[in-house]
Design a protein around this nucleic acid. Structure first.
Length: 105
DNA sequence: ATACTGACCACCA
DNA sequence: GTGGTGGCCAGTA
């Protein structure tokens, strides 16, 4: 019933699943994940979810669309990214989201 | 129900 | 490069 087959849990799960699929050195933005999850424009959901979730996901591989590191976790994120071979300068990654979307030259 | 905030994004000055 | 504004949606008071 109730028709709605999709409950928020399903949606969150989908987003987390995408974050888990990220490999070392692969950095994407919130918007990219949201879009890949089927929710274009809802980047805030991704941010809120990663901020609240306790799941074991590589959140550090997610940055803002401007390549800026996550506010409140820049230190740890920087260390982790550097450990994976990602170039980080002054709190922002050089060449942000690789991969399928964006890839702002 | 309204109001505010937020690990965002795009646009424009 | 910085800063302000609007839009988006969800959680919380």
């Amino acid at each position: 019933m109730s028709g709605d087959g999709d409950r928020n849990g399903d949606r969150d799960r989908r987003i987390l699943d995408i974050v888990r699929s990220l490999g070392p050195g692969e950095v994407v933005s919130y918007g990219d994940i949201a879009e890949d999850a089927g929710h274009p424009g809802r980047s805030r959901l991704v941010g809120r979810l990663l901020a609240t979730t306790t799941e074991d996901v590589p959140w550090w591989r997610v940055v803002t669309s401007n390549g800026r590191l996550v506010p409140g976790a820049e230190i740890e994120q920087r260390q982790r990214l550097l450990g994976e071979g990602v170039t980080v300068t002054d709190g922002h990654v050089r060449r942000a989201p690789i991969g399928r979307f964006s890839s702002r030259r």
